Amino acid sequence: RLIESLSQMLSMGFSDEGGWLTRLLQTKNYDIGAALDTIQ
């Protein structure tokens, strides 16, 4: 599930440099909407 969510976020133009996006998705239970809300 992480790989699916991460690949979708990467395709939106986000980077996972340093693993920050992986950690964010894990804390949000791989919910892309919740991750995007946090980023904004």
Rank of each mutant, 00 (worst) to 15 (best):
K28Y: 11
L25P: 01
I3G: 08
S5E: 05
S15H: 12
T22M: 05
I32Q: 04
L24T: 00
T27R: 09
L6W: 05
S7A: 14
L21R: 00
R23N: 11
W20H: 04
Y30E: 02
T38V: 10
Q8S: 08
L6R: 03
I32P: 05
T22W: 07
A35I: 10
I3L: 12
M12T: 05
Q8A: 12
Q26R: 08
G33R: 08
G13Y: 02
D16S: 03
A35T: 14
G13S: 05
M9Q: 00
G19Y: 08
R1E: 07
N29M: 10
L36V: 05
T38F: 15
D37N: 11
N29L: 11
Y30T: 04
A35E: 02
L2H: 10
M12Q: 02
L24R: 00
S7M: 13
D31G: 03
L6Y: 03
I3Q: 11
D16P: 01
L25Q: 02
I3K: 14
G19N: 06
G19D: 07
S11A: 13
I39L: 09
A34Q: 12
M9E: 01
M9R: 00
I3M: 14
A35L: 10
F14M: 04
N29K: 10
Y30N: 08
L24N: 00
G18W: 07
T22V: 06
S5Q: 03
S5L: 13
T38K: 08
G18V: 02
Q26A: 06
L10Y: 11
M12D: 02
L2P: 07
N29D: 11
I3H: 15
T27C: 15
S11I: 13
M12G: 01
E4D: 10
Q40V: 09
D31T: 02
T22L: 05
M12K: 01
W20G: 01
K28I: 12
L10E: 08
I3N: 12
S7D: 11
I32N: 02
S11V: 12
Q26P: 00
E17F: 04
N29P: 05
L21V: 04
T38M: 13
G13R: 00
S11P: 01
D31L: 08
N29Y: 10
R1P: 11
T27V: 11
G13H: 06
M12L: 10
T22S: 13
Q26K: 14
T38Q: 14
L25Y: 02
L24W: 04
T38P: 00
Q8I: 15
Q8G: 06
L25G: 02
K28M: 13
F14D: 02
L10G: 03
A35D: 02
G33P: 10
G18S: 08
R23V: 13
K28E: 09
G13D: 05
L2N: 05
E17P: 08
R23L: 13
L10N: 06
I3S: 08
G19F: 07
R23T: 14
Q26F: 12
L10I: 09
L2T: 04
R23Y: 04
L25F: 04
T27D: 15
L2R: 05
D16R: 00
L36G: 04
S15P: 08
A35Y: 06
L24V: 04
S15Y: 10
L21F: 09
L25H: 00
T27Y: 14
G13T: 03
L24Y: 02
T38N: 10
A34Y: 05
I39S: 04
L24G: 00
D16Y: 04
I32W: 12
S5F: 03
M9P: 00
L25S: 02
F14L: 07
G13F: 06
I32T: 06
L21N: 01
S5G: 10
M9S: 00
N29F: 08
L25I: 05
N29V: 07
W20L: 03
A34L: 14
L10K: 11
G33N: 15
G19A: 01
N29W: 12
Y30A: 05
D16H: 04
E4F: 10
L2K: 06
G18M: 07
S7L: 12
T22G: 04
S11Y: 08
S15F: 08
G13Q: 05
Q40M: 15
E17G: 06
I39Y: 06
T27P: 03
S11K: 14
I3D: 14
I32L: 07
G18R: 07
F14R: 00
E4V: 10
T27F: 11
I32S: 01
S15I: 12
F14S: 02
Q26Y: 07
L6S: 00
E17D: 12
G19P: 01
S7F: 13
R1A: 09
E4H: 09
D31S: 07
S5M: 12
I32D: 02
A34D: 09
D37W: 13
R23A: 12
R1H: 11
E4G: 03
E4K: 11
E17V: 12
L2W: 09
N29I: 08
L2S: 04
D31K: 00
M9F: 08
I32E: 02
Q26D: 07
L6V: 05
T27M: 15
T38H: 15
T27K: 14
Q40A: 13
G19W: 01
D16K: 04
G19S: 07
G19M: 07
A34W: 09
T22N: 07
G19T: 02
L2F: 08
D37F: 13
M9H: 01
D16F: 06
G33T: 13
